[in-house]
Design a protein around this nucleic acid. Structure first.
Ligand SMILES: [Mn+2]
Ligand SMILES: [Mn+2]
Ligand SMILES: [Mn+2]
Ligand SMILES: [Mn+2]
Lengths: 142, 142
DNA sequence: ATGAAAGTGTAGCCGTGGCTACACTTGCTG
DNA sequence: CAGCAAGTGTAGCCACGGCTACACTTTCAT
């Protein structure tokens, strides 16, 4: 395989930088989406349930929830479960739609269902609005 | 939008766990790919050039290079530039092919060129072999 | 051959996101 | 209503991936 031609330096740096910043919001997005799902499906979102679903220790989940609070996305009082602020709910909603869309596109491209779900969990955090729009058009036009 | 039905707990935990582990190899993959490109295009891969292209400080790049060495992907002697081991070159090659394929699929779906390049930089690290295979078939069958 | 500029390396700081261990609260069950 | 199991919170550890500051080496022009 031929080596890729190197993009201009500032262009490449900008691409990597944006990928890094997308990375840093990925965790918040997953928590927000999961908390919204738990609230809708179970009526409550407890740190232990969040932790089990994410596959991390409850201590890890509690620290992440503290970060959600710090960023104005969630509220929680000791021993009383986690809730989303308006901003948190808006984020969760956006994330849910995007997640769904990514899975649907992958499946439409012939990716097996479980692989699609799996890969979407990571891919979703790197899909820009432009790409999202293209995905929508692709699915409609199917 | 209707709330997604919650997947079974162990399934969901496995998905998140795999996404986390993909995340932890993303940085290695980007460095390996970039070093290979620099070696092919410029004949050498110097820490400063690597750093500038990634948009990080040279100190950050040097620490990452230390990790590449630790993991058996690169070699470097003080003041003499960075090289890839056989394992490093194999990784770089795999990563380059996958990167290209992701960009091509995005473009084929109607994503504008620069957005495709941008999003691919993050997406590539979360594309499984099954998805990669589906992408190939999709492009051929075009 | 020397001095300045460019590159390199190291030390030490920070925030994040994992973990375990331990202490405390809650809520259910007998 | 007592006690136990489950859940919660906190402390303290670690690795990673950013950063700045500073010291050292190399390279290149004069
Ligand atoms: Mn996700
Ligand atoms: Mn998701
Ligand atoms: Mn990348
Ligand atoms: Mn790449």
């Amino acid at each position: 395989m031929a080596p890729s031609d190197l993009p201009a330096e500032p262009t490449q740096a900008r691409r990597f930088g944006k990928a890094r910043s997308a990375q840093s919001t990925a965790l918040l997005e997953d928590y927000a989406e999961l908390i919204a799902d738990l609230l809708a499906g179970e009526g409550e979102a407890r740190p232990t349930d969040i932790a089990r679903r994410l596959g991390v220790s409850h201590a890890t989940a509690i620290k992440a929830i503290a970060r959600l609070k710090r960023e104005g996305l969630a509220t929680a009082r000791p021993y009383r479960g986690v809730f989303l602020t308006d901003a948190g709910m808006r984020l969760a909603e956006r994330v849910r739609v995007r997640h769904r869309l990514v899975v649907d596109v992958l499946v439409a491209l012939g990716v097996p269902a479980e692989a699609a779900e799996q890969d979407a969990e990571g891919i979703e955090h790197h899909v820009s609005d432009a790409t999202l729009a293209a995905f929508s058009r692709f699915l409609e036009h199917l």
